[in-house]
Amino acid sequence: MALSGQGLGFGYGDSQVIREVDLSLAPGELLGIIGPNGSGKSTLLGLLCGLLPPNAGSVELLGRDLGSYTRVEVARRLGLVPQNAELAPGFTVRQTVLTGRFALQGGRMFENDGDLAAAQRALMDTGLTGLTQRRTGELSGGERQRLALARALAAEPQVLLLDEPTSALDLKHQLGIMTLLENTCARDGLAVCLVSHDLNLAGMFCHRLLLISHGQTLAQGTPEEVLTPELLAQAYGVQVCVDHEPSRGRPRVTLSAPPP
């Protein structure tokens, strides 16, 4: 397993944000975490990358307890794209992507050819090659999101966690980012775990979905198994229709509203 969590819990006293969550992520797999607002999706991601310490259970990264790694050792294996792309002001796009190489540079003060090549690949993959000299403050929301992804990809991680990677993107870039993640999974065996609000996008690209509600696992399995009207009604408290989208035949969720 690339990444796995057993009996994960997080919270303070009676107010547990996460309770008894188990999950596993294999190399080359794309796992989507879905659930309503405030269900603990982002907290779960925080536990999985080691930035939040679980108060129950444990996380294993590549077969070793996450707590036994130093921060830089984690960063060499696992990348994180946080929800609000945190970018250094004043840095250009290329400089920002190069900072992503930090964990691999050790004590080296300056970038070498390997760093430059990895950054260039990440810029190409995310479609940012035309913007390399642009400063982070001049970017649109979607460009910032892609830049944060490029910075994480530049470190060539084995596991990548993303919090709402497509939330600020238009249709073209949503498709672009999801295909990129799918291809990188298939090509390099990258294990991806992403939190998403977009059930249809998640259902279309993820191999498996984890539905959480009130910090607990409601369902885990293939999109067909998880995206059912019953489970979604239970999680979100609304009636939905589920049919199949035409391109891949994956489940498609639409709200069912009363007639006008």
Partner: peptide
């Protein structure tokens, strides 16, 4: 710590995720 400071200007979460012991 020049490179660490480069990452810290991006923010604590980003810096920690990229390997800085913030």
């Amino acid at each position: 710590f020049a490179r660490h400071l480069n990452l810290l200007t991006a923010g604590s979460v980003a810096a920690a995720s990229m390997g800085v012991a913030v």
